[in-house]
Each structure stands twice: as C-alpha cells, then as structure tokens.
Design a protein around this nucleic acid. Structure first.
Lengths: 220, 220
DNA sequence: TAGTCCAATATTTTCGAAAATTTCACAAAC
DNA sequence: GTTTGTGAAATTTTCGAAAATATTGGACTA
C-alpha cells in the first residue's frame, strides 16, 4: 500500500471519528508531522478527499475539513434513503441465490460483532460489517453507479453516525439488530414494498436519533 | 488558477472529448510533455479524477482512463434519470420566483447558443449552457447532496454524449430545443407528473440515441 | 519449445528545496 | 479611530532528483 493510500485512510478515519473537527484547517506542515510523511502523499490524499466532499479547498489557501450541520446530515440521510430504496427494489427484482447468501452472511457477521463488547479497533470492524450488510442488500441492483453513489453517501453519513455512537448520551431506545433482521427478512421474502418501507423507516429513525445526539452534544 | 486545476480541467476535457480514449494508460512522463507541467499537479489532478471515476489506478502501476461501454452509459443515464426525477419533483415543490427566473434564463441562453453554428470552442460553451439548464431545473430541490450526485453523473454521461455529438452519423431525428422547452414549460407550470415524465423521456431518448451512435461508431 | 531467472530499463512514488502567494503585524496617513 | 500600505513570516504550490517498484528482454535450463 502506498503512502498516499495510508494518508487517505488515516485522514478519512480521523474526520469520520471527529478527531479532525469540521472546518479545521488542514496545514500541510502539521499533517506532515502528524502522519509522518512528505507533502506529496498528503496532497494526493487531500485531493481525493476533496472530490468526495470530506474536505474543501480554496486555491492557494489550502484545505480544511468540510463543514457539518444537522441540515447536511439530514440531507445526506434522506438522499441515501431515496437512492437505496431504488437500488433495493432493483436488487429484490434481480437478486439470485448468491445475493441472498451474501445478505445472510453479512447479517450474521454483523450480529456476531455487535454482540461483542466494543472497544478501540473493534468499532471499525463493526462499522465495516455494518457497511457490508447494507451494501449486500442492494448489491444485486445491477447498477454500478447506484452502488458508487451509495458508497459515497454512506461515507458522508458515517461522519455523523460514528461520533453520535461514540459520545451517545440519553436518547430514544433502539434495537438495531432487530431492525436489520426485519429488513433482511423482507428483502429475502422478495416483498419489495415492505423491504423499502423498513429501509425508509430504518434511515428516518437513524436520522432522528443522530439529530438528537447532535443537539445533546451541542448543548453539553 | 493553480496548475493542478488546469491539469484537472484539461485531462477531464480530453477524456470527455474522447481524445484520451477509454483504458488508455496515462504515463506521467507523457502527460508531463503533453500538458507542460511537473509531476505534482498532474498527480493531484489524476487523484481527483480517480475519485470521480474518470480514471482508474492500481498502486505502483499508475493511472489509466476508465473503461467505457454501452452498459455503463445506460446505467449512468438511468441513474441520472432516477435521481433527477426525485430532485425535479422537490424543486417544483419548493421553487420560488428566482428558481423560475433561472430556468427561463438558462433555457434562453441555451437556445441562443444552439442556434449558432457550432465549431471549436463553441461546443464547450454550448455544453456549459446545457449543463446550466439542467442544473437550473433542479436547483431548488433543497438538497446539496442530490445536486452533487447530479453533477457527478452529468460528467459521467458527458463522456458518452459529446463524442456521439462530434462523430454523429445517421440516426434518429430529434428536436432537442423543443424537448427542453416542453420540459421547462411543465416545470414552470408546476405539473410534477408531466415534468418528470418529460424528463424521463428526454433521458431515455438520449440514451437510445447515444447507444445508436456508439454502435455505428463501433461498426465503422 | 517452453519456462525461469536475472539484469537492465522504464515507471511510479516520495522527498526536500525553491518559487509563488497569502497572512499577519505594525506603522503611516487621513 | 479607521483605513491603507508595507515588509516579514507562514503557507501553499511546484519542481527536479532520489528511492522504490514494476516491466522487459535475453540468456540459460529442462
């Protein structure tokens, strides 16, 4: 793996985790000592992150972490809901045995990891499996572009979901495992309407939960 | 404007125009002489283009122009149709006087340029106005993320539409100005159903037309 | 002939310094 | 007191060379 890729992963994670807060200026000299590499790989990583809207940049004034707000979070979640609903309907239509198997496997792996007490690196493994599950659901949509958009929006919402998870305070109760199970069940039963409804509800509930956490965090 | 931005624009245009054909390896040494700059700005441009799926890269083996195919074109057009339909409905719901004005102005500018005999640089001006018109239609959707996805997908389809335009042979007849006019009319009349239907038809017709041109070009 | 190793070459990736530009502090003018 | 200008410092951007890695071609072996 090249240094540029390491830089990309590291900075992306630091932004998602909230370690690099929104609108933080990203000075090359600081990044150089923080990540222990030269300008070139850092700039390459920043350019990629810019295209993916994790950072912004102004000519000759450098990079900074992209702003964040409840409105942006809701927009990203709502757009995700709409595009993934389309993709899920297509996947249910075209999915074969392999698609079903991937969903079952991803759900199982996700539940196993969710049952383990999360700490440190485990969070990222849980997160990886969460991503895999949602991707598996729509993987048979036969549209590479929809999958790309999904991946981009998933990343955009991670920036809000992970900090909400890490700093969660009192808030609405949820049984996410049950929600995921019901979602997979409807998809495997090829009940398009029910599956899309459950996906919609799942995202709307998540968006609401994150908004509550964000408001709590802002008040604290 | 920085060299990296110039490189980005130049390479992007060369890919869209078809001057850099699909799957062409992009060797740094060649690009250096072709665009007259050093490695750094070129690599930064390539990293951004990679995130936007105009080029692909493999670690230590460098970059190449992303592949293209009729299937990819149809997928990109279909995804555009779906996301823009959602955005158009939202824009019709939320659009104010300014939104209407932007549509009228963009349509007028597009028609003016379309009436001029196109040659050389004029093509890019026409293209710019075409983009502006489609963006104006959905600009009031109140969803920055949907607009970003639109912009990315518009770029992806440009790669197919522009070469089809430049090398067009015999094919289905179209009156694009009339299509655009009818689309704007339905949007301004706030007829969501009609506007979305016209948008859908517009894209499906375009996708079909491009597919015909691509097959003709492949046969020649 | 087909396959494998090795050296030579080509290419990508990374670094450190130079060039270009912005930012900041402070003085001068109104 | 506010604005305007100016030079130093900080920062980004770019270049050219060095390091790391991949590719090629030819000799050698089975």
């Amino acid at each position: 793996m090249t240094l540029a890729n390491k830089a990309y992963d590291a900075i992306r994670m630091d932004i998602i985790r909230g370690d690099l807060a929104a609108e933080t200026p990203l000075r090359l000299a600081e990044l150089k000592t923080k990540y222990g590499m030269g300008f070139s790989p850092l700039r390459e990583a920043l350019n990629r992150l810019q295209s993916e809207h994790f950072v912004q940049s102004v000519d000759l004034k450098g990079f900074r972490v992209a702003p964040s707000s409840i409105e942006q979070m809701q927009d990203a979640m709502e757009t995700r809901r709409e595009i993934e609903t389309l993709a899920l309907a297509a996947a249910i239509k075209h999915g074969d045995d392999l698609w079903e198997g991937a969903i079952v496997a991803a759900l199982h792996g996700l539940n196993l990891q969710a049952a383990r007490p999360a700490q440190g690196e485990d969070l990222w493994e849980l997160e990886r499996r969460h991503f895999q599950f949602h991707r598996a659901l729509i993987s048979a949509c036969q549209s590479p572009w929809k999958l790309r958009v999904f991946e981009q929006l998933y990343g955009a919402t991670e920036r809000y979901r992970i900090p909400a998870l890490l700093n969660r305070t009192q808030g609405p109760e949820r049984d996410i495992s049950t929600e995921h199970g019901a979602l997979a069940e409807a998809a495997l039963a090829r009940d398009t309407q029910l599956a899309c409804d459950r996906l919609s509800t799942h995202y709307q509930t998540t968006a609401h939960w994150i908004a509550v956490q964000m408001r709590n965090a802002a008040a604290a």
